[in-house]
């Protein structure tokens, strides 16, 4: 999966040392909470779009609210999302990208 962050897949932090497999790829996360959030985000995007895999994500914002542009094949989706402090999705609003 192509990502815009070199650090933690969801917040770009380089602290911590959590490695988890997501979509068949071993990814770096700064903490378990971020790993949980990223996995939840990808699963929700796939459920919304019907994609079998997410090929690329570009994430911006901070933990109180983020935006993600996800791509798969010729499809793109823009998602505004946030999580509870426990790592559950609080907000997920998606729009197709023209």
């Amino acid at each position: 999966m192509k990502r815009n962050f070199a650090g933690c897949a969801i917040c770009d932090s380089t602290w911590g040392n959590v490695w988890e497999e997501v979509e068949g790829e071993r990814m770096f996360f700064c903490c378990r909470l971020c790993a949980t959030q990223f996995r939840t985000l990808i699963e929700r995007i796939e459920r919304e779009t019907g994609w079998t895999t997410v090929e690329a994500v570009e994430i911006s914002g901070d933990r109180r609210g983020r935006e993600c542009v996800a791509r798969s094949g010729s499809g793109s989706i823009r998602v505004v999302f946030s999580f509870t402090p426990e790592g559950e999705l609080l907000r997920f609003v998606s729009h197709a990208v023209a």
Partner: peptide
């Protein structure tokens, strides 16, 4: 990878280890 300490560093000082 303690999330409380990582979070504090991320939000108050730096995201860069």
């Amino acid at each position: 990878s303690d999330s409380a300490h990582v979070r504090w560093l991320n939000q108050n000082v730096t995201r860069q280890k």
